[in-house]
């Protein structure tokens, strides 16, 4: 059982959704990122998605693209991901890594999984790796007991949802809308319907992401999902601001969202 499984079991028994916060590593700086993930955990994030910045983030909107570019320009490395994962674990949160596939492939799928496990990480979210292409990763993850967090989308057919959840572990990542990452004023009805379709195929926790920006949205989604995933709204707190002020904003936004998932 991973730390992720423990956290999701605990929030489920508390009768609330988990708050899952995303931050790309190396942003706003290599040092600042470590303070930021600790701030997120201390202010109420149950789970932190540590992002690995990538030159070609085709699932990301402008906010995360900007953060990733900033991190890359400052010379972020794959090893920084494992440092951030360790920081989240030390602060008492569950850590998963979210990354495009090529950096994992280049690092070596097995090596990446081993380094992640050694750092105390619980698993991997793979936005551009569908299970159809993920045989190597699935094999290694099963061997090491890491969570294989695949995505489902509003466009996924029931048969694909069933096939995907069948090889997923940890939680199912339900993309709330058809589109890239970025805050939206409304997440819409598609998310709720998608969660229902997922639940028809699996008992795994289902977390909803894409577009969530406010405590009110977190509350709404928390009523039907096991977790609420927030990325751009948190990243934005740290853009174009000095670190201390950014961390204050980040703590405040995290507290708002944490209150949201507690209804």
């Amino acid at each position: 059982m991973t730390k992720l499984d423990e956290v999701l079991a605990a929030t489920r028994s508390e009768g609330r959704a988990a708050l899952v916060g995303y931050l790309p590593v190396g942003f706003p700086s290599r040092e600042g990122c470590l303070r930021a993930v600790r701030t997120m955990v201390e202010a109420g994030c149950d789970i932190v998605e540590v992002g690995l910045p990538y030159t070609d983030p085709l699932m990301d909107g402008p906010v995360i693209q900007t953060a990733a570019t900033q991190a890359l320009e400052q010379g972020v490395h794959v090893s920084d991901v494992f440092a951030a994962v360790r920081e989240v674990s030390d602060a008492g949160g569950a850590a998963v890594v979210m990354t495009y596939w090529n950096p994992v492939l280049r690092h070596g799928v097995r090596e990446f999984a081993q380094d992640l496990a050694a750092a105390g990480g619980s698993g991997l979210i793979t936005p551009d790796l569908v299970p159809d292409e993920g045989a190597d990763w699935i094999e290694v993850a099963d061997e090491l007991g890491l969570a294989k967090i695949f995505l489902v989308a509003p466009s996924s057919t029931p048969a694909r949802i069933a096939a995907t959840t069948n090889v997923t572990s940890g939680f199912v990542y339900a993309a709330s809308v058809m589109g890239v990452t970025g805050a939206r004023t409304s997440v819409g009805e598609a998310a709720k319907g998608l969660v229902e379709k997922v639940r028809a195929t699996t008992d795994l926790p289902v977390c909803v992401g894409l577009g969530v920006a406010s405590g009110e949205q977190a509350r709404e989604i928390g009523q039907y999902a096991d977790g609420v995933i927030v990325g751009s709204a948190l990243v934005k707190c740290l853009l174009d601001v000095d670190l201390d002020e950014g961390l204050e904003r980040l703590a405040e936004k995290t507290r708002e969202l944490a209150a949201g998932v507690r209804g």
Binding site: L58, D128, V130, S155, S156, T157, R160, A175
Partner: peptide, 28 residues
């Protein structure tokens, strides 16, 4: 198949090719 996962080796030229995309695009 249009249902479930794609057959192994779909769209491969030897080792190359495949379909590394977000799930949201698979249906399209």
């Amino acid at each position: 198949s249009g249902e479930g996962l794609a057959p192994a080796g779909l769209g491969r030229f030897g080792a190359y090719g495949g379909r590394y995309v977000p799930e949201a695009l698979v249906a399209a």
